[in-house]
Structure formats: C-alpha cells, structure tokens
Amino acid sequence: MIRRLIILTGLLGLWTLAWAASGRMSFILPPPWEVAVAFFDHADLLARHAATTAGEILLGLVIGAAFGAAAALAMTLWRPAAPWLWPLFIASQALPVFAIAPLLVLWLGYGLASKVAMAALIIFFPVASGFHDGLSRTDPGFLDLAATMNAGRWATLRHIRLPAALPGLASGLKIGAAVAPIGAVIGEWVGSSAGLGYLMLHANARLQIPLMFAALAVLAAMALLLHAATGRILRHCLPWVHDTLDGP
C-alpha cells in the first residue's frame, strides 16, 4: 500500500515537472490539479461513461473467457482439432485489433455489441492458450495413479486434468483482464456514442484536455482495479496455487 502511494506521488511529481518544463501549456499537458478540477466538475459525466466501458469490459471478459476455455477443452478432448484450430487462433491474435475494429463496428453496429466483441476477441487468446497448456501438461504421475485406480477418461478429466489446469486458466484470465480495456476503448474510438474512449475523443476534439486526462485516469484506475480484483478472486478460489498468482 505504501509502495503504491509512493509510486502515485512519484508519478504526480514527474507529471508536474513535465508540465513546468514544457512551458506550462495546459492545452497540451495540463497539471494534475487542473485534471482534478475537471474530474470533480464532470464527475457525473465520467461516471456515466465509465459505467458503459466497465460493462463492455466485463461482458467481453466473461464471453471471451467462456469461448477461450471452450476452445481449449475442445482441442484437448478432440486432439485432431488442435492443428486445425491453432493457426486460426494465432491469425486472430496476429491481426491488430485496430484493423478489425472498423469491420466489427460495421457488422455489429455502434452499440455495445461491437465493443464487447472486441474485448472478447482480445481476451480469448490468452485464456485459450493458458488453459490448453494446463490441460496438456498434467503431471504424468497423477495420470498413472488414476489409471491404476481404474478411472475412466471422463473421471480423469473432471477430477484430475481440469483442476490441474486451473492455474493455467488463471494466468490466462489475469493476462486477459489486463488487456481487456484495450479492446473496449479501441471499439469506442472507431465508432460509439458512449464510453470513456468516446469521451476522450470528444474532449480531445473540443480541446478539453483536462477532461481527457481525467477520463484517462479513470480508465487506468478501472484497469488496475480489474487486475487486482481478478487476482484476488483467483487466489481465493485456488488457494493451493502460488507461483502464478502470488506477486503483484
């Protein structure tokens, strides 16, 4: 906690220095206090748009994680599928979301759907890859033990391979939670009528730079909160996992 305060204070100090050094041009880089004023002046507006973005991120996280986990399971249960699906997943990951964003907006409209799809698309890959890794790297000793206990394929999957893969799924989810805001905000930039990304573009165009920074700060806070909450929930659900979940 103290470390976080020091980091925050340091950043604010650097910010003020940069502002002073760059000729105190508030329309390019406003000082922290102007951003704070903008934040309190527009608290309602920020809250409304933040709620939209948060909804997009959370929905995208749930949908992307569900599809990612399902894809990993499908490739595990039906091995011949893996060599067909992997190139597809990698291609979907290699294509910059920026490139697909206009298409998704064209197909799914200016509303919630295109942003959720964008966030889901970004989250899908780390979850699928982490979970699939976990499912294919079960300790062979556990599988031997299950075989000598006359366990069937499904029982082995349910009681051994799935729980053993949860740490992999968890690290995929943690990465997914960290990148999910990117998808939502890009979607908002390309075409939307609400959300922090929309607000930032709008404020930028009208030279309300302090408001833009305030929106950026809210977005950063949301991303950090999401990351921390995901970590905390996963640690609570997987108390036996240490290496991937301990740490910041």
């Binding site: 000793g141 556990f142 031997d144 033990l145 206990m149 006359n150 029982a155 009681h159 036996w240």
Partner: peptide, 27 residues
C-alpha cells in the same frame, strides 16, 4: 493392485482426507 510412487502424488487441490478417498471419487 494399488500403486505408490516415489512422489506422493497427493492432489494439491484436495484435502488430505479427500486425497485418501481419491480412488472412490474417480470410480
């Protein structure tokens, strides 16, 4: 037959008692 390996092979997500009952759970 029952199998006991060099590694204890206790499943880390199950309690000690649940590990002891693993065979019944799997079957």
């Amino acid at each position: 037959l029952a199998w006991m390996a060099q590694k204890d092979l206790l499943l880390p997500w199950l309690t000690v008692a649940e590990n002891v009952r693993l065979g019944a759970r799997l079957r």
